[in-house]
Amino acid sequence: MRNISDIIEEHLKRILESAGKDRIDIKRSELAEEFQCVPSQINYVIKTRFTVEKGYIVESKRGGGGYIRIIRIQHQDRAELIDDIIHIINPSISQQAALDVLERLLEEELVTKREARIMLSAINRETLAFQLPLRDEIRARILTAMLTTLKYLNK
Rank of each mutant, 00 (worst) to 15 (best):
S29W: 05
K61T: 10
A97M: 05
I142W: 07
Q36D: 13
Q96V: 11
N3S: 04
T112C: 04
D83L: 07
K54S: 11
R23G: 03
T112I: 02
I57M: 07
E17T: 03
R14F: 11
L110S: 07
K155E: 15
Q36V: 07
K113H: 10
K61V: 15
R62N: 09
E115Q: 15
L31S: 02
L147V: 05
I7E: 15
E34T: 12
L12S: 07
V52Q: 08
S40C: 06
I57K: 14
R2C: 00
Y56H: 03
E34A: 13
V111M: 01
E53L: 00
V52C: 00
L102S: 03
I24T: 01
I123C: 04
I26P: 04
I118T: 11
G65T: 00
D77I: 01
A79L: 11
R141Y: 10
L132N: 11
I138N: 08
R28T: 13
D136I: 02
I118L: 13
R23V: 01
I26E: 04
E137P: 01
M146S: 09
T149L: 13
Q74C: 07
E17C: 03
R69V: 05
M119N: 02
S60L: 03
R117S: 14
L134P: 02
R28M: 06
P39W: 02
R117K: 14
H11G: 06
K155D: 14
K13S: 08
Q41Y: 11
P133L: 09
Q76M: 03
R135D: 11
I42L: 10
Q96L: 12
L31R: 09
C37R: 14
L150D: 06
I42Y: 07
I24G: 00
L134K: 12
Q76G: 15
I88N: 01
V58R: 08
K21L: 13
L147Y: 03
E53W: 00
E59G: 03
E33L: 12
L134R: 12
I24E: 05
